[in-house]
């Protein structure tokens, strides 16, 4: 399955990455607090805003998408998104949606920067980009969502995977 298949169409015909997680052993208020702390790191220039429902919030963010491979790989744009989260008794759900693509171009100093500042909903990328380009962008959007999904899970369960340092193998050079 391609990573882009992790994106689904919602009732408004827009792409979303939506998950419902059941059987959460952590108390609802604690889930909400930990998710809030996680969200604060998504965007340094913005703070989460409380939603209308209890224990719900949303925040906007963005990540870069790339084109090319190896040495030719460079930023081809940024994708902005809206992250919605809600905790309930024994479960939580979240959604990455409202994805918008902001194309980049190379500036006079050799840096990749937003071309015009205008963004295009990813549902309308077909108007300006080839199927190959769209597939690459959708794969990266999905991959970023999957990565953030894992980060959120770690934040909520507090089970950050710690690398166990490998035991150094010693050799006794006195012996043949």
């Amino acid at each position: 399955m391609a990573q882009k298949d992790s994106l689904q169409m919602d009732e408004n015909n827009t792409y979303v990455y939506y998950k419902v997680v059941n059987q959460v052993a952590v108390p609802e208020t604690e889930v909400y607090r930990r998710a809030w702390d996680f969200a604060r790191n998504l965007n340094r220039n913005s703070r989460p805003e409380k939603g209308q429902a209890e224990h719900a919030f949303n925040i906007s963010g963005s990540f870069l998408v790339y084109s090319g491979t190896s040495l030719m790989r460079k930023e081809s744009g940024a994708v902005s998104y809206l992250f919605n989260f809600q905790a309930a008794d024994g479960k939580y759900r979240f959604k990455f949606g409202n994805f918008k693509f902001i194309p980049y171009k190379r500036d006079r100093y050799g840096n990749m920067v937003p071309a015009s500042g205008l963004s295009t909903p990813i549902e309308k990328l077909a108007d300006a980009y080839t199927q190959k380009e769209r597939d690459a962008y959708f794969d990266q959007i999905a991959a970023n969502c999957i990565y953030l999904d894992k980060q959120l899970k770690q934040a909520i369960y507090g089970t950050e995977i710690k690398k166990v340092p490998a035991k150094a193998i010693k050799v006794n050079t006195d012996k043949w």
């Binding site: 040495l71 030719m72 050799g110």
Partner: peptide, 10 residues
């Protein structure tokens, strides 16, 4: 640094 982005050619 957490990661070293590759040398970019354009």
């Amino acid at each position: 640094t957490k990661s070293d982005p590759p040398l970019v050619i354009s």
